[in-house]
């Protein structure tokens, strides 16, 4: 599992960590029940504070992606398809929002956009 954080990005590091782990879970790199590295090990490897990794894990647990067992560590929660779908929907909407924004500001019509979308979907 790779986790790459950027110190110069505006996004707080704990957010970077939690969203990357989320992606790994969604994409299947991290399977159900898989053990996550301990907060301390992650902190050491990424050269960040243990408070940061703790926060990231807390957020992941709050969002239902992982479960923390006292004394044992953190594990990927049972795949909750609902949650995952929700997340994917959200990301897709984000991207579409951007496309709409650009289209509107350059005079591209909704019809054009529709066509583009169908073409792209069929291509893949």
């Amino acid at each position: 599992m790779d986790i790459i954080i950027s110190n110069s990005s505006g996004k707080p590091i704990y957010e970077q960590i939690s969203s990357q782990i989320k992606n790994h879970i969604i994409s299947g790199t991290l399977l159900e029940g898989a053990a996550l590295p301990s907060m301390r090990l992650l902190a050491k490897e990424l050269r960040v504070s243990v408070i940061t990794t703790k926060r990231a894990y807390e957020d992941l647990e709050r969002d239902g992606f992982i479960e923390t067992v006292m004394g044992k560590g953190s594990f990927v929660a049972n795949r909750n398809m609902e949650l995952i779908k929700e997340e994917q929907l959200r990301i897709t909407e984000e991207h579409l929002q951007k496309a709409v924004h650009v289209a509107k500001s350059s005079g591209i019509t909704l019809l054009d956009l529709h066509e583009m979308l169908s073409m792209l979907y069929e291509e893949e």
Partner: peptide, 10 residues
């Protein structure tokens, strides 16, 4: 690194 190793035990 030595210090970070030390602190692995909470």
């Amino acid at each position: 690194d030595i210090l970070l190793d030390f602190i692995q035990d909470e």
